[in-house]
Design a protein around this nucleic acid. Structure first.
Lengths: 354, 354
DNA sequence: TAAGTAAATGTAAAGATTTACATTAAGCGC
DNA sequence: GCGCTTAATGTAAATCTTTACATTTACTTA
């Protein structure tokens, strides 16, 4: 009469096959399998398979530890991945971790905007480090987040406009929007344009404002005075681009070029111009910002500022990996700003050459 | 003299604060925190914070179990997320799981194509179910995969061309390429086109071949004979689209419309036509397949077949959730084919109306 | 003040694996 | 057949939390 002791898992297999749990464990793990005689191993595997047996992850993790994990915090709104931005950034994270043993996990927040930090803590419990993108963070949230004791990388675009990165304690990664803006406006100036219309984005957005400042700086460098009537601001989508273009085309003295604070605005502008029979680049030059997939496909191909998304992702991953051992807590805020490049394509043309 | 017993974790905190481990545990978990007196809790939290204490995930998981997880298997090639396909599908998975307690994890494979199943087993160890996309699977791999005892959803596009889904034991989800092809070709026929050029994709790809068959069927329904000279096949990118368009425009008797097996081909064709001064849709109609982001932005906006990526993702998630409790093993293969819709935009025009 | 209730905390079992170290078995040269 | 080496396996400790159940404490109410 056997005792009714409920044998489970590995112990059951061990008894059934007639070996010790140690042997079963060794047989079941790839990296120790070679320590077990082949015939023993196959009996174990066979039985395990028949039983649909799976090692208890908890017990396993308790012994081996959790494989290091990068959590990516995205807002749970359904439309997140509509924008190619996320996909491309994520692709960068994946390829940066691909050769390592790091896992990538996607965490969503957004049940309650006020409880962001709480949600983040809960979701990120088993992650070694977190990258936060997409969710705009308020000052209050950032204060709460200050004492989150784990490697945390914030994309610059989630920060409030006037937030001082240096006085915080976050690792922040972003695009050099300002520099990109300068290069875009200088490009048009170099092509001879002097009357340049600006289709800007919402001035609550850090990215947009930085770009805007870059535009102004570039113009200033060419001695062009800032004319408020040459700035159009509405929203950030193609529809606003159309409106902006309409506004400028209706001016008595039309600008010869348009600087658009993102690609969507540029596409909208492009589209409206075309519909009005105004040819780009012959009649008007248009420059975007982002360099999404569309920029290189549409016609005319868009001159735009390229953001190094993959490098940003790689840097974010690196920061986390570097800080995992020695979480440099309470360090001063660090900003990594990656340079943009100007991708000159077909939508911008020399003014004099026309 | 205190014993040198090395107290760790929760026990140390318990001793330090002067409570039991049970209380510490309760204080440290959101969902049990209310059971602890507020003052007790805050001392515990304070100390835990000072110590940079983190609950041991293994021990925790051992008690609470692992939260259910969907693993998404993607090839580790860096370029994965270049294509918007992945991002959009992933977005679908995320929004389908957002309201639940399910986690989404991204798993990469591809170290050694021959060891795909092994990699998948290792990577998916802690996942409740897996969705496999992007990596083309050979017959051999599929046989190996047959006895993977966990919910597994395969995207149809990873299957070999002639693989019989019914005789396998996989859950397969895909687009009704055939139906989409039929609707696209019928659309052109209904517009009066009778001489239609086909720019097809590689005939090793399941998706492309299914679309192709759909095209033929649609033409057949309008009594149009299949003319091999009206099929052009090279690769699947815009460059091939240009070549295809070139081929057809050089014909003595040009087709009045082109069916392209994906959007990229269509964009290439569009671009070439434009460069030759052939106006779309006035001189030639062009129809794509995919309905990516670009299709609705370029000019003319592309008439194309829309794939319901988000629904596919949602279905995949549902299949996994349904099978997690009762993994219907060894069931017959099941194919869920989601219907496409034809998005009629600007690039297709009635022949007679011109 | 006894009895009853609710809140706060304590006790101790349970959870299943991995692995350092110990032991046994097997192979081999002499 | 002895001593040596290596392969295969066994023993048992270690891992740290959670939670059912028990107990104590603090109040309320009759």
């Amino acid at each position: 009469m056997t005792l009714p002791t409920k044998l489970t898992g590995i112990r059951l297999i061990a008894k059934e096959v007639g070996v010790s749990t140690a042997t079963v464990s060794r047989a079941l793990n790839e990296d120790t399998a070679h320590k077990v005689k082949e015939s023993t191993r196959s009996s174990i595997l066979e039985l395990a398979d028949k039983m649909h047996f799976r090692l208890n992850p908890g017990a396993r993790i308790m012994q081996r530890g959790l494989s290091p994990t990068i959590g990516i915090i995205v807002p749970r709104k359904d439309a997140v991945f509509e924008s190619e931005f996320y996909g491309r950034f994520l692709g960068g994270v994946i390829s940066a971790t691909a050769a390592t043993s790091w896992d990538v996990r996607i965490l969503t927040t957004g049940r309650d905007p006020l409880k962001f930090v709480e949600e983040l803590r809960a979701a990120g419990r088993d992650c070694s480090g977190l990258i936060c993108l997409g969710t705009p963070l308020s000052e209050g949230t950032l204060v709460e987040l200050e004492n989150y004791r784990r490697p945390l990388v914030l994309l610059k675009s989630v920060l409030p406009l006037d937030y001082s990165i240096e006085s915080g304690s976050f690792h922040v990664i972003g695009t050099d929007n300002f520099g990109g803006g300068v290069s875009a406006s200088r490009h048009l100036c170099e092509l001879g344009h002097r009357k340049i219309g600006l289709i800007l984005g919402p001035d609550a957005s850090r990215d947009f404002v930085e770009r805007e400042r870059g535009y102004f700086e570039g113009l200033r460098q060419f001695g062009i005075e800032i004319d408020p009537s040459l700035s159009f601001r509405e929203s950030y989508d193609d529809q606003s681009g159309r409106h902006g273009c309409e506004y400028f085309l209706n001016m008595a003295e039309r600008p010869t070029a348009l600087l658009c604070a993102n690609d969507s605005l540029a596409f909208g502008a492009l589209d409206y111009a075309k519909s009005m029979g105004v040819n780009c680049p012959n009649d008007i030059s248009i420059v975007g910002f982002d360099d999404g997939l569309l920029a290189n496909c549409c016609s005319p191909k868009l001159t735009t500022v390229t953001q190094p998304l993959a490098e940003m992702a790689a840097q974010a991953v690196e920061v986390i990996m570097n800080n995992i051992e020695a979480p440099s807590m309470m360090s001063l805020g660090e900003l990594i700003e990656l340079p943009t490049t100007l991708s000159i394509r077909e939508s911008s043309h020399s003014l004099t050459a026309v």
